[in-house]
C-alpha cells in the first residue's frame, strides 16, 4: 500500500491543476482559521461586519479599508470572515446531505425489492423539483437566515448521492467478495460497512468535493436574493447583495464601484475553482479506469 500511496502522491504532484487546487484550498483554510488574527472582531458576533461609517455610498479601497467600504461596512472584513461562512455552508451542507444520500442509497441498493422501489420513487419526486426554486420556497417557508438556507439545501441536496451510491452498490453487491462474505456468515450490516461501502465510496467523495464549491454559489444566490444571511453578516453572497444597487456605477463611470463586486466575486470564483480542481484530482487518483 505504501508504494501505492507514493504513486498517488507522485501522480498528483505531476498534475499542475491538482497542485493549484490544493494550494488554493490550503490558502482558503489558512484564511478561515486565521480570520480573528487578520481582522480582529469588534462586536459580540464576529460574523457581523462592523459598521465603519453611516454613509451608505461605497468608498474605494484605502489603507484603512483595503477592499473598500460598502453600505458602511468593511469589505475586507466581510471577505475574510466570509471564507469561514463559505466553509461552514459548504462542508455542513455537503456532509449532511451526503450522509443522508448514503443512507438512503445504500439501504435501497443493498436490500433492493420494494424498499428500493419506494426510496427511489421518493428520490425521483425530490429530483423533479427544480433545486433553486425548492430552496427558495423552503427558505421562505422556514423564515430567513443562514441556518434555514442550509436546511433547505440539505433537504434538496441528497438525491444525486443516493442515486450514485445505489448504482455502485448494485454493481459491487454482485462482486464475488461480497458473496463470499455472506457465505462466511458475516451479517448484512457488516457486509455493507466492510465490503460494500469502502468500494463504492470514492465516487461519492469526489462528487461531494465538487459539490462543496457549487453549494457556495447556490447559497450566495439565495443571499443575493435576500433570503440568506441577515443584513451585515460576513457572507460573500450578502456582500454582492449590497453591491446590487451600485452595479451600474455612477453616470459616466460605469466601473466606479468595481471593488464592491470584484473582491467578493473573485473570492467566490477561486473557492469554487479550488474544490473543482481538487475533485478532478481525486477522480484521477481514485478512478481505477485511469489507473495505469
Amino acid at each position: 500500500m505504501r508504494t501505492e500511496t507514493k504513486r498517488m502522491i507522485k501522480r498528483l504532484l505531476r498534475n499542475p491543476s491538482a497542485v493549484l487546487g490544493f494550494s488554493l484550498l490550503i490558502f482558503f483554510t489558512v484564511i478561515a482559521i486565521g480570520a480573528p488574527l487578520i481582522c480582529p472582531p469588534q462586536s459580540y458576533d464576529p460574523y457581523m461586519i462592523p459598521i465603519v461609517t453611516w454613509d451608505k455610498t461605497p468608498q474605494p479601497p484605502s489603507t484603512e479599508h483595503p477592499f473598500g467600504v460598502i453600505d458602511g461596512r468593511d469589505i475586507f472584513y466581510g471577505v475574510i470572515w466570509g471564507t469561514r461562512t463559505a466553509f461552514k455552508v459548504g462542508l455542513i451542507v455537503t456532509l449532511t446531505s451526503t450522509i443522508i444520500g448514503l443512507l438512503i442509497g445504500s439501504v435501497a441498493g443493498y436490500f433492493g425489492g420494494w424498499l428500493d422501489e419506494i426510496l427511489m420513487r421518493i428520490t425521483d419526486v425530490f429530483l423533479s423539483i427544480p433545486y433553486i426554486l425548492a430552496a427558495i420556497v423552503v427558505t421562505a417557508f422556514l423564515g430567513m437566515g443562514l441556518n434555514k438556507v442550509m436546511i433547505s439545501l440539505i433537504m434538496f441536496g441528497w438525491m444525486a448521492t443516493a442515486r450514485l451510491i445505489r448504482g455502485n452498490i448494485l454493481q459491487v453487491r454482485e462482486e464475488q467478495y461480497v458473496l463470499a462474505a455472506r457465505a462466511l456468515g458475516v451479517n448484512d450490516y457488516l457486509v455493507i460497512l466492510k465490503h460494500v461501502l469502502p468500494n463504492t465510496i470514492f465516487p461519492v467523495v469526489i462528487q461531494a468535493t465538487m459539490r462543496i464549491g457549487s453549494l457556495v454559489i447556490t447559497a450566495a444566490a439565495l443571499s443575493f436574493l435576500g433570503l440568506g444571511a441577515p443584513v451585515g453578516y460576513a457572507d460573500w453572497g450578502s456582500l454582492l447583495n449590497f453591491a446590487r444597487n451600485w452595479l451600474l456605477g455612477a453616470s459616466g463611470e460605469a466601473f466606479k464601484y468595481w471593488y464592491a463586486i470584484v473582491y467578493p466575486g473573485v473570492a467566490m470564483v477561486l473557492f469554487v475553482l479550488a474544490w473543482n480542481l481538487v475533485g478532478d484530482a481525486l477522480r484521477d487518483v481514485f478512478d481505477p479506469r485511469l489507473r495505469g
Partner: peptide, 26 residues
C-alpha cells in the same frame, strides 16, 4: 460447514482489505 471458492481471482478478494482480514474474517 458449507463454504465456497469462486472463479475470479480478481473480484473474489476485497481489494481494500489485507490478507489477514480477508482470511481472518470467517
Amino acid at each position: 460447514d458449507l463454504q465456497i471458492v469462486f472463479q475470479d481471482p480478481y473480484s473474489s478478494l476485497n481489494p481494500r482489505l489485507r490478507v489477514k482480514t480477508i482470511v481472518g474474517e470467517g
